[in-house]
Design a binder for these strands. Structure first.
Lengths: 218, 218
DNA sequence: GTCTATATGTTGATAGAC
DNA sequence: GTCTATCAACATATAGAC
């Protein structure tokens, strides 16, 4: 019989990633670097050391592979955010709300995945916000709808004087800051998570208070 | 002889745009909607009612067409910003600095171009920030380098207590907000320029002050 | 200047062997 | 499950007529 012992090729991993996960890891990297249209199935499967047909067998097509990549990271991340938002009191401080919203994404921004490094995951999420709407919209609702709703509610409790329009501005500017940070434009220079988080929280909290004042001053 | 009088096809325009400008307009729209990789020369030239070869004749290739699109809008916009920043006093208020930085992009976000509507220009600029670095970096330096430098200097005068790291955070978060706004996620809902501008200025000013405090509190 | 026609490569997806 | 081989459609770019 074949006596080839399955040699562990990398001593740091305690289990060799199967093809499906190698494909997910590779797709994550390539989609992050080049965007949806710029990433070809060939470049992805080549990076994974596999073939186009294997990817199509496991995922069914390019678009399905893309959404699988996003889902794998974003689903657990958003569960953590939901838990943090649910843990807030009835009248939370602004900084508490923003921290609940920002912490999980920031912490995961350079985390090592179960199988391989995935420091590029951040780019994928950041790019989600500039992909074509017809491709991204349904997925954004599915992945972020619940978090956005709870974030909105928590902000409304933290800023009881703020109207709907003001709350929307506050939320959108929080998203803007987060997306920009995750895309690496800010804090790529080896910033530790704690510093980055406190910068984001302080900036968003003060900005939100200013918008509430602005609204009242009219 | 051919008696076909060149009928003016659109009474609102007082001069018919030539092929080159029709191509720029079309490219602006298609690049904005689909990004660089998602936009094909065929779809662009078809939108312009022209042909691929005409585009290559005028611009030399896809990448050159793309940078021509960006340059056409961004060069005058950034000149306006430079003039506004140069007009600041030696010790400007934070809100003055941010307004000088934000006003021109906001005002141009839905302006009608010389030849045709170009409400999509905003998306092109927003997308510039997620295009592949090797494609976008040189152009970003060329188009935004000067503005960024003057913005940095003005911020340093407005926040004399802020260190370099803090100033960088302030700048990056201003860019983040602006890009997000221009991409249409915020303020797409018929916001007038004045409201949007004051929201951005108020948010950025308060956020910047908070970051300066945060730095000192350490 | 602008077109049609074409050259040459790449794409996403699938068929079928193993 | 995973591969190789192949498909039709698409990409960018160019040659050459007018």
């Amino acid at each position: 019989m074949s006596q080839a012992v399955p040699i562990r090729q990398d001593a740091r991993d305690d289990c060799a990633p199967d093809t499906k996960n190698r494909l997910l890891d590779a797709a994550e990297r390539v989609f992050a670097e080049r965007g949806y249209d710029g990433a070809s199935m060939r470049s992805i499967t080549q990076t994974a050391g596999s073939s186009v047909s294997a990817a199509n067998y496991h995922f069914g097509g390019k678009e399905a592979l893309w959404s699988a990549v996003l889902r794998r990271r974003l689903a657990p991340m958003n569960e953590a955010r939901l838990a943090a938002l649910a843990g807030l009191g009835p009248r939370p401080a602004p900084a508490e709300v923003f921290e609940a919203y920002f912490r999980a994404p920031i912490e995961r921004r350079s985390r090592v995945g179960t199988a391989s490094h995935s420091s590029f995951q951040r780019h994928v999420m950041a790019r989600l916000y500039t992909e074509a709407p017809e491709r991204a919209h349904a997925l954004k609702v599915e992945l972020f709808g619940e978090v956005s709703a709870r974030f909105h509610e928590a902000l409304a409790r933290a800023f009881p004087a703020a109207g709907e329009a003001t709350l929307l501005h506050i939320e959108q500017l929080a998203v803007a800051a987060l997306v920009h940070v995750l895309s690496g434009e800010l804090g790529a220079a080896g910033k530790d998570d704690g510093t980055l988080l406190s910068v984001l929280v302080a900036h968003a909290s003060a900005g939100a208070a200013a918008l509430t004042d602005l609204q009242e001053g009219r």
